[in-house]
Design a protein around this nucleic acid. Structure first.
Lengths: 132, 132
DNA sequence: CAGCATGGTTCGACCATACAACCAGATAGT
DNA sequence: ACTATCTGGTTGTATGGTCGAACCATGCTG
């Protein structure tokens, strides 16, 4: 595991493992938002497994980049809905692209015959870790 | 991948994913040192994929905990050899124990028939990422 | 309506890392 | 041998990341 983390580059907070020059936390948030369209801030908190304070700060950073905006939640006066701006969306797409490329590069060095297995195993592992 | 990282708890810098109350960086260093016996600081730098300055600080922290000591390298007047103290060794063992437990817990939720595959896949993946 | 729960924000403390500047010992080229 | 360069380490500075506590506003419950 340790080897895996370091080799993948997960220990660098200010750069995604895929070479994009944006902080990994923001990249994660961007990913979730792009996939969901818009999210309650509390939802984002749960998906990223953060503390609400961290999420708050993170969202503010995205806003400062012009990638997201906060609007009041429609059904709860306390809540906040976070939505990507068009620029945020293209940023997310750029990111997805980079991710795909990095992944392709790695998979390229995995023996052809193992690839399906590796992918399946990763999914299983993630699910196994998901619920404790 | 993102899911994996967050689910595993890798985004918390001050606590290992295995529940031990020590910073993950120190845990990684401890692991490498325990496995190697003693390491040149520059070696540690390469294994952890850090910058030499980061390693220097990291080692200092280990020393402050009483887990390691610096001695001059025998064959190079510039170099530094880092060695675990007895306390450092027991700390490393405690850590390995926790790691094993965490891993066992996860594997427990992986269907019996898949376990071997999952393990193999993880190894292959790590190797694939290793050399770019 | 009082009391408690929930969603957010701000603040303070700690951890992790890189890059640049600097020093000392090692090495290579002339 | 002497200088120029390389290599290993240290320290300072800046950026990023996370949590927990204190605090506020809104919602829910009895």
């Amino acid at each position: 595991m340790v080897r895996f983390v370091r080799a993948f580059g997960l220990h660098q907070p200010d750069q995604t493992p895929c070479g994009q020059p944006i902080p990994v936390s923001e990249a994660h948030a961007l990913g979730e938002l792009a996939r969901a369209g818009a999210l309650r801030q509390s939802d984002l908190t749960h998906r990223l497994r953060l503390e609400k304070s961290s999420t708050s700060r993170l969202v503010t950073q995205l806003i400062n980049r012009g990638w997201a905006e906060r609007t009041p939640a429609p059904d709860d006066g306390r809540g906040v809905l976070v939505r990507l701006t068009p620029q945020g969306l293209t940023a997310a797409e750029r990111l997805a692209e980079a991710r795909a490329q990095r992944f392709a590069g790695v998979m390229n060095r995995v023996p052809e015959s193992e690839r399906a297995d590796v992918l399946r195993a990763l999914t299983i592992l993630t699910e196994a870790m998901d619920e404790p």
